[in-house]
């Protein structure tokens, strides 16, 4: 059976992609952000995941409002990145894992999650930037050292799935991965957040106290977040802060107790409170 090694959750701001492309990791603005990642990379080198299940939200690259799935699962041999319209470099396609994809599709539908299945899927910065942070390199030229399966969550068009529903999806995902007949080592990745709001007169809203509490609770009491409704989260974390749903799904997929490997929090990157959390599932 497959082994779940843990979960890494991280923000996915587009400007990070531009900073990586320009080699700004040691720039005074960027250094306090990038400084969070080396301990997580080291842990990944030790735990050697073969495939990452990446829970993220699309920002209008693969999905538009003509067809907006609540939950979509990629089942493609590879996942190309493409022009998103604002000049961050296009990276090489990320190789998929079709066996795992179809196992997840079958398992999730069996568990009564009526997901959308995608045999072709473009992936945007919310998918590629976290992978580029975890496996650094010139990904416009050098192949990715990891396979991946995208799980895309609607955080754009309301109604969004409830926090409770996302938590249950995560649990079903974890059970499915654990039952996959494979020797592969699987990492969960949840991307987006933490608190930020790009739109409206409340643009620039950040809630440090809530973010830090959320990160703590994600380690020790992950169900805590399910007490909130989606509009509570909009109020507490901003209109785009609701991307933390992706973190919830990734965390809920971990079976049993977890160990915190590393946590990092930095304000701001662009308009966003940038969070990073790595959890080992080695109970």
């Amino acid at each position: 059976m497959a082994t779940i090694v843990g979960a890494v959750t991280t923000s996915h701001v587009p400007a990070i992609g531009a900073a990586i492309a320009r080699g700004l990791e040691d720039d005074p603005y960027w250094q306090p952000f990038f400084a969070g990642y080396p301990p997580v990379r080291e842990w990944l080198r030790e735990r050697r995941p073969d495939v990452a299940v990446v829970v993220y939200n699309d920002h209008g690259l693969n999905f538009f409002l003509d067809k907006m799935p609540t939950f979509a699962v990629g089942a493609a041999p590879q996942y190309p990145n493409a022009d998103e319209g604002w000049g961050i470099p296009t990276l090489l396609p990320v190789p998929g894992d079709e066996d795992l994809s179809w196992h997840l599709v079958e398992s999730l539908v069996e568990a009564e999650f009526d997901i959308v299945t995608c045999q072709e899927m473009l992936v945007d910065h919310a998918f590629t930037i976290p992978l580029a942070l975890l496996w650094p390199g010139d990904r416009a030229r050098e192949p990715w050292p990891i396979r991946a399966v995208p799980i895309c969550v609607n955080t754009v068009l309301f109604p969004l799935p409830s926090v409770r529903r996302c938590y249950k999806l995560g649990e079903a995902l974890g059970r499915a991965i654990a039952a996959w007949e494979s020797d592969a080592r699987v990492l969960l990745v949840g991307t987006g957040g933490l608190s930020h709001q790009l739109d409206g007169r409340r643009a620039g809203f950040i809630n440090k106290a809530f973010d830090l509490l959320f990160m703590d609770k994600l380690v020790s009491d992950p169900q805590w977040i399910t007490q909130y409704g989606i509009l509570d989260l909009v109020e507490l974390t901003g209109t785009q802060g609701v991307e933390l749903l992706n973190w919830v799904i990734a965390r809920a997929a971990l079976p049993g107790a977890v160990r915190k490997v590393h946590a990092h929090y930095h304000i701001p990157i662009s308009n966003t409170a940038a969070g990073l959390l790595a959890l080992a599932a080695d109970s």
Binding site: L65, V156, L157, P159, Q197, G200, R202, V234, E235, T239
Partner: peptide, 12 residues
């Protein structure tokens, strides 16, 4: 929610 527009059915 002050200063905030939720992208709901009316907006869509």
């Amino acid at each position: 929610i002050p200063g905030t527009t939720v992208f709901d059915a009316d907006q869509a």
